[in-house]
């Protein structure tokens, strides 16, 4: 019996692989490298915004108005590119700054005053208000959209931006700020008792999250070339949120994985109706929340330090002995 099991598994894998491939071919014609590269580029753009949301979530800033921030980055890009004629690379940090300023605004207006559930609902309302503003504003093109943004995001530019963002997050994760973010998420009260300036840390989280999201908005605007207010509705927030929640809050790699799941799964499971893929999302979320309530990579307790670890740490910090120091009792940890 057991000898058959690998054969069976192999057959199953081959069948599912072939079915997936055939399904892709049926829907998108021949699957070419260009198509896969396009898919990866879209995923990269999505990921930059999702990582912005991830930073906010690590700091306990439950933002449901995140699509509004993406929209601010994208509309800022539109104004920069079309009305002012600024090319892609210079507009990138500028739209990041626009996102950062919007993040500060969210923080000052909402995050300083509300927390937890109320913050989520408040940011959601803020995002919806932004959509209504864009919808009725002639300067931003209203419901007709903001057209004629040059096509500038391709796999190359997105890869460069994403690499820089990931490098930045990797450094950030090793810094003191990351611990401060986690501290104000777990308990603002305890954090402030430990000497952490909660308001400043919140401001920092919103600034970083807003900057990354603004970058994502810029890449998006340069990719889809026409902006419509409805693109930045709660649906976009939900897709970003799913990537972050599926990934868990331990490291940004969780968001990278969760985002890949959210982004690629629909392409692999697409049948004739897009409805069925949203249904599939729903089922997956329920199952995941029951099986792994903290996401794929849940935030764990800090790594426990054993006595041996501390000994090693102390040895590293202790200056080398020259042999003629006065003797003192050996320290125990």
């Amino acid at each position: 019996m057991s000898t058959h099991a690998p054969d069976f598994l192999q057959a199953l894998m081959q069948i599912s692989w072939e079915a997936t491939w055939r399904g892709l071919e049926l829907h998108y014609g021949a699957v070419t490298w260009a198509f896969l590269l396009d898919l990866l580029t879209d995923y990269g753009i999505y990921l930059v915004s999702a990582l912005g949301l991830f930073v906010l979530f690590v700091a306990g800033q439950y933002s449901l108005g995140h699509a509004g921030l993406v929209g601010i980055g994208a509309y800022a890009t539109g104004v920069l590119a079309v009305k002012l004629g600024i090319p892609f690379w210079p507009s990138l940090p500028l739209s990041g700054l626009a996102g950062m300023l919007a993040g500060f605004l969210y923080c000052y207006l909402l995050a300083f005053r509300l927390s937890g559930f109320y913050l989520a609902i408040g940011t959601f309302a803020f995002g919806e208000a932004l959509i209504t503003f864009w919808l009725n504003s002639g300067f931003f093109g209203g419901a007709l959209g903001f057209p004629k943004i040059p096509l500038a995001s391709n796999w190359f530019t997105v890869a460069i931006v994403l690499a820089v963002v990931l490098l930045f997050l990797w450094r950030l994760q090793q810094s003191r700020f990351w611990l401060e973010f986690q501290a104000i998420r777990e308990s603002p009260l305890v954090a402030s008792a430990m000497g952490i300036d909660v308001r400043r840390t919140k401001m920092l989280a919103w600034g970083i999250g807003g900057f990354l999201t603004g970058l994502g908005g810029n890449l998006l605007a340069h990719r889809i070339t026409i902006l419509a207010p409805a693109d930045f509705s709660i649906n976009l927030t939900l897709v970003l949120l799913l990537g972050v929640l599926l990934g868990g809050l331990r490291t940004f790699w969780g968001t990278v994985a969760g985002g890949a799941f959210v982004y690629f799964m629909p392409w692999l499971t697409t049948t004739d109706e897009p409805r069925s893929r949203l249904m599939f999302y729903g089922l997956t979320i329920i199952a995941l929340m029951i099986v792994r309530p903290g996401g794929l990579l849940p935030p764990g307790a800090p790594k426990a330090r054993t006595a041996a670890d501390l000994e090693k740490l102390a040895a590293r910090e202790r200056p080398a002995l020259s042999g003629n120091e006065p003797t003192r009792p050996s320290q125990t940890y």
Partner: peptide, 12 residues
């Protein structure tokens, strides 16, 4: 999140 999933599932 889970009830959001239920809503998505039912509506679609």
């Amino acid at each position: 999140v889970a009830t959001l999933g239920v809503g998505l599932f039912l509506e679609n």
